[in-house]
């Protein structure tokens, strides 16, 4: 219907304020819960990358994992289910659509990857998003890092069908992680 300018301006202002208020209220009501979910998911990811199975991730995390700061590199360390001392180190890199974050675990000698877990990714659901699936993550357990990672029968690592760009991005992130973060850690550890 035809309305004057003043009415239009007042109307849009009122509607904006009301809906912003509602959203702010909903956000405030759920904020702590969402933050707790994120934190718990983070702890579960650290445990998964280390190779520790846990029903109650938070309790097991608090009991077995210690946080360390080695020359500015923050990492988690724990003895995993195989009885091996492992380091879980956060990583970050670009995927196809956005930043991929997560944890990579390595053994104390920094020679083998013990596992990988993702905490944040925006890859295409059902395609690149399948990096979250068990079979994909499990194949990185126990891979030696004396040479750069590649897909194929020789390495025993499979890419994801239909998600070549995301698959390649993961390997690039991991190789980058091995070349930089692990090198730094090795040097820092030697001191």
């Amino acid at each position: 219907m035809k309305k004057g300018y003043l009415y239009t301006i007042v109307f849009i202002a009122v509607v904006s304020i009301v809906f912003s208020g509602v959203l702010a209220a909903v956000n405030a009501a759920y904020k702590s819960r969402i933050e707790r979910n994120v934190l718990n998911a983070e702890k579960a990811s650290v445990l998964y990358s280390m190779g520790i199975e846990a029903d109650d991730a938070v309790a097991v995390f608090n009991e077995r994992v210690t946080q360390k700061d080695i020359e500015g590199i923050y990492l988690y360390s724990a003895v995993n289910d195989e009885g091996v001392m492992v380091y879980s180190i956060p990583f970050e890199g670009s995927g196809l659509w956005g930043t991929i974050r997560g944890y990579i675990s390595v053994d104390q000698g920094l020679s083998t990857i013990k596992g990988i877990a993702f905490t944040e990714q925006n890859e295409t659901p059902g395609l690149g998003g399948r990096i979250e699936e068990e079979w994909y993550k499990e194949q990185f357990r126990g891979i030696g890092i004396d040479k750069p990672l590649v897909y194929g029968e020789d390495s025993g690592i499979d890419a994801i069908t239909g998600a070549t760009s995301t698959s390649n991005a993961i390997l690039q992130i991991m190789n980058n992680f091995i070349d930089t973060t692990l090198k730094e850690l090795e040097e820092a550890d030697g001191k």
Partner: peptide, 30 residues
């Protein structure tokens, strides 16, 4: 709703509900 800004209002209302759905799923179905 004044006619000339009805699409702005529609988008605003729709966006508000979508954000509520998003928050709800994040809180309850992470």
């Amino acid at each position: 709703i004044p006619d000339r800004i009805r699409m702005i209002v529609q988008t605003l209302v729709i966006a508000a509900y979508v954000i509520i759905v998003d928050i709800f799923i994040k809180a309850n179905l992470p």
